Amino acid sequence: MATVKFKYKGEEKEVDISKIKKVWRVGKMISFTYDEGGGKTGRGAVSEKDAPKELLQMLEKQ
């Protein structure tokens, strides 16, 4: 499965596409929420050019 690499609050993070719950576009950025486990929801964003094609496909399906 594909992963998304991004920075959040200065920390490098990587999340599996299957854990992503919601995806939306903000200008040229793709924002998303994902399941961190333990009932927590994380947030992240990547630029449109750095987003994996699976993430862009999720955006188109909504």
Rank of each mutant, 00 (worst) to 15 (best):
G44D: 01
A45S: 12
I20H: 00
Y8S: 04
S47K: 10
K28A: 08
K53T: 13
V15H: 01
V26Q: 11
E48P: 06
T41N: 14
K7G: 07
E60V: 13
S18V: 14
S18K: 10
K49M: 13
G38N: 06
G42I: 06
E54K: 04
R25E: 15
T33D: 11
V46M: 05
K61H: 09
Y8R: 03
T3C: 10
T41E: 09
G37F: 08
K22R: 06
A51L: 09
G27E: 07
I30V: 09
E54I: 04
T3H: 03
E11N: 05
Q57V: 06
R43H: 08
K5E: 01
V4L: 03
E36F: 06
G39H: 13
K7W: 11
V15E: 02
P52W: 01
K19G: 04
K9I: 02
G44A: 08
D35I: 06
M1Y: 10
Q57M: 10
K49L: 12
D16W: 06
M29A: 15
T33C: 15
K9C: 15
V23R: 02
K49A: 13
Y34P: 00
G42M: 04
G10L: 02
Q57P: 07
V4K: 00
E48L: 06
I30Q: 00
K9V: 02
P52R: 02
F6K: 00
G27Q: 15
M1F: 05
A51I: 05
I17M: 06
K53N: 12
M58W: 05
D35G: 05
W24V: 12
K49H: 11
T33K: 08
Q57L: 10
A45F: 11
G10K: 01
K22A: 15
G10W: 01
G39A: 11
Y34V: 02
K49R: 12
A2T: 14
E12Y: 09
T3V: 08
F32L: 09
T41Q: 10
G37C: 15
K28L: 13
L59C: 10
Y34W: 09
Q62D: 14
E12H: 05
V4N: 00
M29V: 13
W24R: 08
V15F: 01
K53S: 15
R43P: 07
M29R: 07
M29E: 14
I17Q: 03
M58R: 09
D16S: 07
K9L: 15
M1A: 08
V26R: 06
G38M: 14
K49D: 14
A51V: 14
M58S: 04
T33V: 05
W24E: 14
G42P: 05
T33N: 11
K13L: 05
I17G: 02
G42C: 07
T41L: 07
E14R: 03
E14L: 02
S31H: 14
D50R: 07
V15I: 13
T3P: 02
K61L: 11
K53A: 10
V46L: 05
E60I: 12
K7L: 14
E12M: 06
K49S: 06
E12D: 13
L59D: 06
I20G: 00
F6T: 02
G10H: 03
I30M: 12
E54N: 08
M58I: 13
T3N: 03
I17P: 02
F32I: 07
L55D: 00
K7S: 10
R43Q: 11
K28V: 13
M29K: 07
I17Y: 02
G10F: 02
I17W: 01
V26I: 08
K19V: 13
G27I: 05
A51W: 11
V46H: 02
M29N: 15
E11P: 00
A51Q: 04
G27R: 05
R43N: 15
K40V: 14
K40R: 12
K9M: 15
K61E: 07
L56Y: 06
Q57K: 08
P52G: 05
L55A: 01
G39D: 15
T41D: 06
Q57Y: 12
E11H: 07
V23W: 06
E60M: 08
E12C: 11
K28T: 10
K9H: 12
Y34I: 02
K9Y: 14
K19S: 08
V4Y: 00
G10A: 02
I17D: 01
K22E: 14
V4T: 01
L55E: 00
K5F: 02
R43K: 12
M1T: 09
L55T: 01
Y8M: 03
K22H: 15
A45G: 04
K28N: 10
K9W: 07
K13A: 03
D16K: 05
E60T: 05
K61N: 09
K49Y: 04
E60A: 14
G37P: 08
R25K: 14
V23L: 09
K7Q: 13
K28G: 14
R43I: 07
E14C: 07
S18E: 15
A2Q: 11
P52E: 03
Q62W: 03
S47M: 12
R25D: 07
R25C: 15
K49P: 07
K19L: 09
E54Y: 03
G37I: 08
R25T: 11
K13D: 01
V26F: 05
V26D: 05
K19M: 14
K53L: 11
Q62R: 07
K5M: 02
Y8C: 15
I20F: 06
M1K: 10
E14T: 08
V15D: 00
E54L: 07
S31M: 04
V23M: 06
F6D: 01
S31L: 10
F6C: 03
F6W: 13
T3R: 06
V4P: 01
E48D: 11
A51P: 09
E48S: 07
M1I: 08
E48A: 08
V15T: 07
I20M: 06
G42K: 10
V23Y: 05
A51N: 03
F32Q: 00
F32W: 01
E12I: 05
W24M: 10
K13T: 03
W24Y: 03
Q57G: 09
K53V: 10
R43W: 11
L56A: 15
K9A: 11
G38V: 13
E36R: 04
P52D: 03
S47I: 11
S31W: 08
G37Q: 10
G37V: 11
Q62E: 11
K21R: 08
T41M: 10
D16A: 12
V46W: 01
L59M: 14
K5S: 02
D16E: 10
L59P: 03
E54C: 10
K5R: 05
A51R: 02
K21I: 10
M58F: 05
L59R: 05
K7V: 13
A2M: 15
D16N: 15
M58A: 11
S18Q: 08
S47C: 12
E12T: 09
S18F: 07
A51G: 08
I20K: 00
K22S: 13
F32T: 00
G39M: 05
V46F: 01
S31Y: 09
L56K: 08
K7A: 05
V46I: 10
T41R: 11
V46K: 02
G39F: 08
S47T: 05
K61M: 05
G10Y: 01
G39W: 04
S18C: 15
E12V: 13
M29H: 13
V26S: 13
P52M: 04
K21Y: 15
A2K: 05
E11F: 05
T33Y: 12
K28I: 10
A2G: 11
K28D: 08
W24N: 13
I20S: 01
F32D: 00
L59S: 12
P52A: 04
E48Q: 06
A51T: 11
R25L: 14
K28H: 08
K49W: 04
E14N: 05
L55M: 06
A2N: 06
K61S: 09
K7M: 04
V23K: 03
E14Y: 03
V26H: 11
G27Y: 07
E54F: 11
E36P: 05
G10S: 03
T33M: 07
T33H: 15
W24D: 15
A45L: 03
S47W: 10
V15M: 02
K13W: 02
V4H: 00
K21D: 12
E54D: 10
K21W: 13
D35K: 06
G37T: 10
V26K: 15
L55N: 00
T3S: 04
Y8K: 03
E48F: 05
L59I: 15
A2P: 11
V23C: 11
V4F: 03
G37M: 11
M1E: 09
L59F: 13
V4E: 00
D50Y: 07
G10E: 05
K21V: 12
R25H: 10
V23Q: 03
M29G: 15
K22D: 15
F6L: 02
K21H: 13
T41V: 14
T41K: 15
G37N: 12
I20E: 00
F6H: 02
A51D: 02
G44T: 02
E11I: 10
V46P: 00
K5C: 02
K7E: 14
E36W: 05
